[in-house]
Amino acid sequence: MENPSRFNLIGSSPQFQQTLRQLEKMAQVDVPVLLLGETGTGKELAARAIHYLGPRAGRPFVPVNCGALAETLLESELFGHERGAFTDARQAAPGLAAEADGGTLFLDEVDALSLKAQAALLRFLQDGTYRRVGGSQERRADVRILVATNAALEQLVEARRFRRDLLYRINVLTLALPPLRQRLGDACELAQVFLRRFAHQYRIFNRQFHPEALDYIARHDWPGNVRELENQVHRAFLMSEDGYLRLGTALTVSPLAAGAALPYKTAKARAIAEFEQRYVSGLLKRTGGNISRAAQLAGQDRSAFGKLVRKLDLQGLGLGLPNLADKG
């Protein structure tokens, strides 16, 4: 495979190298690929690599985040609409399938598609034809479909929330992106790459990882995967006061600020408590107070995460969080 760093696919572990070899093979065959993996494992990066390593590289790569679109607009976004098809449809729109004609249409969070949109997608996958919302003319687009999800589609099929025939259509080939905790040695390699990127971005070249930070990076499970690692390195880079990047608990701040004069157990307990408060409140703000979603992002059971939220009493700390009682 040509230099995978071109696609930001970085890692020397046997697990990740095997994934890259599979990706290269899949790029050469013009069939749908289902990309599986936890949040932050790089599914869209892999989809872009499949496109740009394949025969459609000179044509458009069009990504669609199905989970970010309202259910009522998904079919219109994918296949377009005619003027007057619905309120605010003041003019016709071709849709993303037409935009991707000749290239690749990447559907992220495909599990978010409504059953109606799934039926339209299935019809499109069968013969490449579709109709705009509000239109009767049959249109055609030649696209390669790549889809991604972190959901268990078989379970959704059993719950009748995802069509089994659509699953068969999109699952011709499957590429599973391994979580960072299974990619031995890759976390430290990635961290060094991120450090160099931030050094060039901010024109600050005199910073390095504290030795204990590298140990933490190697040991941590990284439930948020590569995205979580990048965010922590970014934060540590910006907050460094002495040229060292510190990640983890007490390592996230300078030794003096961490209370170096306190007894070890007291300083450690304080640092852990402060980390828990920042981490959990950050997740809750990101998810609008949805405890279930925050627990999923943290890689924790909802019940255990809810106990942590109650222990921290975040609602009572005046952190500007939404009402948690009605969420998740």
Rank of each mutant, 00 (worst) to 15 (best):
E2D: 13
P4R: 08
S5M: 03
S12M: 03
Q15Y: 07
L20H: 11
L20S: 00
R21W: 00
Q22M: 11
L23W: 01
K25V: 12
K25Y: 05
M26H: 01
A27D: 11
V29E: 09
D30W: 09
D30N: 15
D30K: 03
G37C: 10
E38V: 01
T39G: 12
G40Q: 12
G42K: 09
K43R: 14
K43H: 13
E44R: 04
L45V: 12
A49W: 02
I50H: 00
I50G: 05
H51Y: 12
Y52M: 10
L53S: 01
G54W: 11
A57W: 10
A57K: 14
A57S: 13
V64D: 09
G67A: 15
A68C: 10
A70W: 03
T72N: 13
E77G: 00
G80R: 02
G84D: 02
Q91L: 00
L96P: 01
D101H: 15
G103Y: 10
L105N: 04
L107H: 04
S114N: 07
K116S: 15
A117D: 02
Q118Y: 04
L121M: 05
R123L: 06
Q126E: 15
Q126F: 05
G128T: 12
Y130Q: 02
Y130F: 15
G134C: 09
G134L: 10
G135I: 09
S136F: 01
Q137D: 13
E138M: 12
R139N: 14
A141I: 07
D142R: 13
V143M: 04
V143R: 05
L146Y: 11
A148V: 01
T149A: 01
Q155V: 07
Q155K: 14
V157N: 02
E158W: 02
A159C: 03
F162W: 11
Y168T: 10
R169T: 01
N171E: 13
A176Y: 02
L177H: 09
R181P: 08
L190Y: 06
A199Y: 00
R203E: 14
I204G: 06
F205N: 08
H210E: 11
A213W: 02
D215H: 04
H220W: 14
W222A: 02
P223L: 04
L229A: 02
F237M: 04
L238G: 03
D242Q: 00
Y244I: 10
Y244E: 11
L247M: 15
L247V: 15
G248W: 07
A257C: 11
Y264T: 13
A267W: 05
K268R: 15
K268I: 06
R270Q: 15
R270E: 10
A273Y: 06
E274W: 03
E274K: 06
F275V: 03
R278Y: 00
Y279T: 10
G282L: 00
L283A: 07
L284V: 12
G289N: 11
N290S: 14
N290Y: 09
A295M: 01
L297H: 07
R302T: 15
S303T: 13
G306A: 15
V309E: 10
G316W: 00
L319V: 01
N323Q: 12
L324I: 10
K327E: 10
